[in-house]
Design a protein around this nucleic acid. Sequence first.
DNA 1: TACCAGGAGAAAA
DNA 2: TTTTCTCATGGT
Length: 217
Amino acid sequence: MITLNRIYKIFLATYGPQHWWPGETPFEVVIGAILTQNVSWKNVETAIAILKDRRLMTPRALYTLPAAGIAPLIRSTGYYNQKAKKIHNFLEWFARYGLSFKRLEAEETGSLRGELLAVNGIGPETADSMLLYAMGRKLFVVDAYTMRIFTRIGILSGGETYAKVQELFHRRFRGGPEDYNEYHALIVKHGKDVCRKKPLCGVCCVGRYCEYALKHN
DNA sequence: TACCAGGAGAAAA
DNA sequence: TTTTCTCATGGT
């Protein structure tokens, strides 16, 4: 069976470094993580541009607005009423740390993750995206692309939980937080550009490891 | 026109 | 406990 490390090398050689997350500051990363829930990044870029244009892309500035004030600014991302509440919920939590990422640095990763998951609107993928890309914590981000691609390759069966898949990557993928960062970005790149459009992509879907190859051979 | 996109939580079964 | 429903805009 092909290994997680081997697939990482193939993706990196094929696409090159992705320089993720697309965001200028940790705050922009955490806001982007909420806004991109179940929607394409293109929709998110519009909302981020509006927030920046209004000079609201800082914790203190955005915290002055109620959810109802945030909602119309993020319409392009869909589910805007829910997402506005989620952002406000996050800021309520963040205020306990003085709206300062510096203050979060002393916190242990596990407890920080637990606190984020307790915020209504932040699930495992959003929490791990924030922790990895905004706070540099070593946690693998599992998303729909990860499930689809690695099921297609044959490493997953398709019914695994988020926790189960993350545990697999933590146990079998050898790399530092910078590799976790890059691997997830490459998975998204591959999922968007190649694996969604070509059933047998020839990069990750190699021979017997691809479900389509299994069906047609 | 129909379908999908870097989820999460509540309600129903 | 597991499955289904709801949230909603924008691109293909």
